[in-house]
Amino acid sequence: MVKKRDRLEVIHDILSIVMKHKNQIKPTPLLRYSNLSSQRFADYYSELLKKELVREVVDKKGKKFIMLTDKGFKFIEKYKLIIGFIDEFDL
């Protein structure tokens, strides 16, 4: 049985998808690649915006893109340390 991803893992996956797409991806492909239900994706997405890990940009044609913020890049960079810390202290 496939283990359910925990919250931090899902956040990391979403941010990594954005980064792999040259830090610019539309919401619909992001939903598809993230392997989440629409509702769960919406919850995570609003959390990411609220925590300023991603931001929305609208181009000249009025299309919405999602980009990582500096904090978002920092999260990806520190992810292994975060997981290591949580494991080390049984948090």
Binding site: I11, K51, F85, L91
Partner: peptide, 17 residues
């Protein structure tokens, strides 16, 4: 030292720690 980890994650375990 754990301030940054918490601000990035909002992880409750880190918070109580």
């Amino acid at each position: 030292k754990t301030k940054e980890l918490y601000s990035l994650t909002d992880h409750k375990g880190i918070y109580y720690f």
